[in-house]
């Protein structure tokens, strides 16, 4: 449904997006994940035909953005980072304008407005001036605008940014429910969002794709290692030096001490019996081991792992 091919975008001499390629299948939700300035918005703006790429192209529903931007625009609903609202209009006036812009036949406008309003639960504020709405409602109005012409593809740039936790959950549920009828790309820098809503993840950093897979697949790719947190009496430095000697301990991710109790987080290789070795070491040295636990690898770990060494290697 969406195919991005060797897409590059430069602003002057600065390369914001550097030769990225990925595809999204029909009905899928793709999460586009990356830190600030990674190039998410830039990529979306190219896909939606807001601006042309410097190199490469994107194909949406069979049409090339560069060669046939109008056909692509007909098939895309886009919610930009800042919802494009005319604050002085009422919700219905605004949706009416959006419907006409998207060339919905006059006879169907009212029906489409009602349909989109229902999907994002704003039917009750149709006559309110947008200026008077809360941020969450404004976001929904923006979403209704993107949905109004039943586009095959939805492009949502950070759809939950700035919302309260309850609204975030509601908007996520909305997006999930839309996936039956639409193919969706959404960008975010919130990891749980991707975990909860997306079928596939593309992680991008400084304009380059550093990983793309299913959320589970990504978590698994890091499963060669596990994180071990130990809490023991003794000085953090001494414990650290001793622990690094153990075979299988790759690095110490975190260490802290308080009132003579040290807490260390280790990254260990799965294959070795690190836990056993640690408890033996502790009794040998006479340090009281107070707690030891293994942490699940989360997407967040994947992300941080990738970000910290994305300059050296590219996983894909």
């Amino acid at each position: 449904m969406i195919e991005v091919r060797n897409l590059t975008k430069r602003y002057g001499t600065f390369t914001a997006v550097d030769d990225i390629s990925f595809t999204v299948e029909k009905g899928q939700i793709l999460g586009f994940l990356g830190p600030n300035g990674a190039g998410k918005t830039t990529t979306m703006r190219v896909i939606t035909g807001f601006m042309p790429p410097t190199g490469g192209t994107a194909i949406v529903a069979g049409f090339d953005v560069v060669e046939n931007p109008l056909e692509v625009k007909r098939r895309i609903g886009y919610l930009p980072e800042m919802p494009p609202l005319y604050l002085e209009m009422t919700v219905n006036e605004y949706l009416n304008f959006a419907a006409r812009l998207k060339q919905i036949p006059s006879g169907q406008v009212v029906e489409k407005i009602a349909g989109a309003s229902r999907k994002v639960a704003i039917s009750d504020v149709g006559d309110k001036v947008i200026k008077t709405l809360s941020k969450g409602y404004r976001q929904r109005v923006g979403l209704a605008q993107a949905l109004i012409h039943d586009p095959e593809v939805l492009v949502l740039d950070e759809p939950t940014i700035g919302l309260d936790p309850i609204q975030i959950r509601e908007v996520r549920e909305m997006i999930k429910s839309l996936a039956y009828e639409h193919t969706i790309i959404l960008s975010t820098h919130i990891l749980p969002e991707v975990d909860m809503t997306c079928d596939r993840v593309v992680i991008i950093d400084r304009g380059k794709i550093v990983a793309q897979d299913t959320p589970e697949g990504l978590a698994k790719s890091l499963k060669g290692t596990e994180k071990l947190t130990i809490m023991a009496e003794g000085s953090a430095e001494e414990i650290s030096t001793a622990v690094t000697e153990i075979q299988g301990v790759q690095k110490i991710v975190d260490s802290a001490s308080e009132n003579g109790v040290s807490t260390l987080t280790l990254e260990c290789d799965f294959q070795f019996h690190v836990r056993k070795a640690v408890s033996e070491l502790m009794s040998e040295k006479g340090w009281a081991l107070l707690e030891m636990k293994v942490e699940e690898t989360t997407l967040e770990d994947v992300f941080i792992h990738l970000m910290s060494d994305s300059s050296e290697e590219v996983v894909s």
Binding site: E71, K73, R74, P84, L101
Partner: peptide, 14 residues
Amino acid sequence: KTGTLELLLTSPIT
């Protein structure tokens, strides 16, 4: 300024 130009420029209109 308000970003609505992005709506116009991504709609099927020249």
